[in-house]
């Protein structure tokens, strides 16, 4: 194996923070956001690959959720440009971002408690003429579309094992079911890129497997996925690509098993957060091995355990 060049089928040229992707769906440049004097996000360049599952990881306070908010229009950056499928999204309001096919979920679930599960789903649908205040008054104008999206919603609910709950208030669901509902609701609009903010947080282990399966299925259905996660097991198992943030910057990126061996990543986690569960990797990497020399631009180490991981990208 070559000692100097790390390559990857998703990437043009060398693998490293800010590397060029073969087919990027999101490209961000010089995106910064400060709170008070603190730079919460300072991303020089990052590209999110299309039709892949990309994980955005990093210790608490690394700026992951803020970066999510900026990309989706829920927060405004101090500087920077970013584009989605080649269209600039700077200063585009959140709802237009969603309409372009970039739909997000939230870390703390935002299921609409006093609407039924089915109503929650129907809200996710697009092109319902009855959402206009004037057409709303005349039912024949929107009844047809309502039947179509109800059928679609029931399909999705069935897939997410929520169909029998469809007439319950969303507030009566368990935390994990709400996560599922939120994901299913996001799918109602057939998004191009779905952005999940900590989809596993607060979900019981029994549901975790099914959630993982759903996320993989999204890719199989032709979508791109970007998700924020803390749980390294999960990141290892389903992601094709991992981007690591620390102190607002992208400090490393690459395929999951490589990134988890990256001294910069270990440093970012252990330096900031000694008790973080690094998953299987904590056992194999001695703490002493974390070198002080690791910098934000360090290239990833060469020896990988790529063979053992599922690389759906390469098939």
């Amino acid at each position: 194996m070559s000692e100097t060049m790390q390559t990857h089928p998703l990437v043009i040229g060398e693998v490293g923070p800010g590397c060029k992707k073969v087919d990027p769906i999101v490209v961000a440049d010089n995106v910064t956001r400060t709170f008070g004097g603190l730079k919460a996000v300072d991303v020089v360049h990052v590209e999110i690959p299309r039709n892949a599952i990309t994980a955005l990881i990093g210790p608490n306070g690394a700026g992951k959720t803020t970066f999510f908010n900026l990309l989706t229009g829920f927060d405004k950056p101090n500087t920077g440009t970013w584009s989605f499928e080649g269209h600039s999204l700077a200063r585009v309001p959140a709802f237009r971002v969603a309409r372009k096919g970039m739909v997000r979920t939230f870390q703390l679930t935002k299921s609409l408690g006093r609407l039924s599960v089915l109503q929650n789903m129907l809200l996710g649908a697009t092109k319902q003429p009855g959402e206009n205040i004037f057409t709303a008054l005349i039912k024949p104008l929107w009844r047809g579309r309502e039947q179509d999206i109800t059928a679609k919603a029931e399909d999705l609910l069935d897939r997410f094992k929520l169909l029998e709950k469809s007439s319950d208030y969303a507030a009566s669901l368990s935390g994990g079911q709400r996560k599922l509902l939120e994901m299913a609701r996001a799918l109602m609009s057939d998004p191009v890129l779905i952005m999940l903010d900590e989809p596993m947080a607060g979900v019981n282990p029994a549901l975790t497997q099914s959630l993982l399966g759903h996320v993989k299925q999204l890719k199989a259905d032709g979508m791109s996925v970007l998700f924020v996660e803390h749980d390294m097991h999960m990141v290892r198992h389903i992601s094709d690509w991992v981007i690591v943030m620390a102190e607002g910057r992208v400090v490393a990126e690459g395929p999951p098993d490589q990134v988890m061996n990256d001294p910069a990543v270990i440093d970012a986690y252990l330096g900031a957060h000694h008790d973080t569960d690094l998953g299987e990797m904590t056992g194999t990497i001695p703490v002493a091995a974390a070198p002080e020399t690791a910098t934000a631009t360090a290239t990833v180490p060469t020896e990988t355990t790529a063979a053992e991981t599922e690389r759906e990208v390469e098939k």
């Binding site: 959140a94 709802f95 935002k110 709303a136 008054l137």
Partner: peptide, 21 residues
């Protein structure tokens, strides 16, 4: 109507409704 659904959704959580376009 669906208009009412959106409005009630906003009552529950406007960011969620915003994220749905």
């Amino acid at each position: 109507s669906p208009w009412g659904r959106v409005v009630k959704g906003i009552r529950e959580d406007e960011d969620a409704v915003r994220s749905l376009g």
